[in-house]
Design a protein around this nucleic acid. Sequence first.
DNA 1: GTGCCTTTGTGAAGCGATGCACAAAGTAGG
DNA 2: CCTACTTTGTGCATCGCTTCACAAAGGCAC
Lengths: 245, 245
Amino acid sequence: MTRRIPQARERGIPDATVARLPLYLRALNGLAERGTATVSSEDLAVAAGVNSAKLRKDLSHLGSYGTRGVGYDVQYLIYQISRELGLTQDWAVAIVGVGNLGRALANYGGFVSRGFRVAGLFDADPAVVGERIAGLVVEHADGLESVIRKRGVSIVVIATPATAAQQVCDRVIAAGVTSILNFAPVVLTVPDGVDVRKVDLSIELQILAFHEQRKATGGPMMGDEWPDGVVVVSERGAALGEASQ
Amino acid sequence: MTRRIPQARERGIPDATVARLPLYLRALNGLAERGTATVSSEDLAVAAGVNSAKLRKDLSHLGSYGTRGVGYDVQYLIYQISRELGLTQDWAVAIVGVGNLGRALANYGGFVSRGFRVAGLFDADPAVVGERIAGLVVEHADGLESVIRKRGVSIVVIATPATAAQQVCDRVIAAGVTSILNFAPVVLTVPDGVDVRKVDLSIELQILAFHEQRKATGGPMMGDEWPDGVVVVSERGAALGEASQ
DNA sequence: GTGCCTTTGTGAAGCGATGCACAAAGTAGG
DNA sequence: CCTACTTTGTGCATCGCTTCACAAAGGCAC
């Protein structure tokens, strides 16, 4: 029986903290490459682009791994964060949908470098099946379930068109997958216990456009008028005038 | 002089709300295609995958565009959200870095569909310059500044290797760009007034791995031991035992 | 017009994340 | 050993977002 370690790391690291740990890890790896042995919270915070108090609080959730008056041991902290994130084991990832994006992902070096191994590429298009990409042969999506089970795939990346995404999602969940990274522009419906993270290029651009418009004009185009000239009535019944107002 | 509209939409929509507006927009477009004329907050919330109270509060930040007892007019709400996000004008986007990811982005249909127009592709590699992708000819990165000014590019997508990202970032900012979508795995340093949004595939996977590990074992591998067997000391000076403890 | 039903818009409570500021804990030097 | 200095870890106040719950507002039937 493995006893629990009664520590600060008493289960339950805030989501916001988890989302920043990979950032710290990357900054630490940069420092390690330059031969830095120890680093203060202040310096690491600058490298990661966050507030130093936040950094310290984040790290305190993992345990007390710093030395007061000195800072953090770079190598040791890399190991602890990697372990917390589960990067000391390697994860088999399958990519479903080998279009432009799927190819880019398959070739992306960042995956392999950190405990992630692309264990399968799938597509429904017979013209693509059999093609060799990044050292793997694209398989037909029919074999999805069996390959997931056979190769122990635990994370699936969905890079299919929007119309196919939910179906692929359902199938991989049925095959036992509980972690999905979705690039298709749809809201996936999943049962409890399944984690979905979404990356949506179009949404990111729209958010930028919002801020860009703010900066340029101080707000959206004036007037609540319809493009075809219908004047509408705002709340409180106050009728608005021409668009040029 | 354009007078201000003294309304609920008195500047300052919460960031969290702005990030969800594109989601609502997509759900609304889906409804519109199916010919739905009006929709209740409850139904729209389900389609967008959020809580209905949150949806109503979000929409209330734009103005009072619903009708009590009925719901929201789909077409009208599409127009209002589009206007708020700045999608009624079109934005010239440049993509810098035409590797696998840059190509995928250039070919991505989601850009063109919603007010975004790819106005330039750039790369530093002479072997890529001149290639035709998605109807555009890849230009050399030397011409970045002049093309940005000439074609009125206001949003730049950085899809270069990490090492080149900060330099590209500095150059496009110097050319007047204030909105950047960054795919390179680095923290970009920018002056105030410039918006950067980051998409980092590797970070998303690491977050998934964290949760996956949680589900599988209830936490990270037990023990604070180094891989090579060095026993370390936790906070409070309490020495920890073997990994099997 | 009157009453009933539906759905919005929002006050207020709850919750989690952020950042300040400082005591505790360590190093270094004499 | 004692003092001076550095840096961590954290209590606490604050902030912003989420969620509940309900009054206000509109539609509809009669």
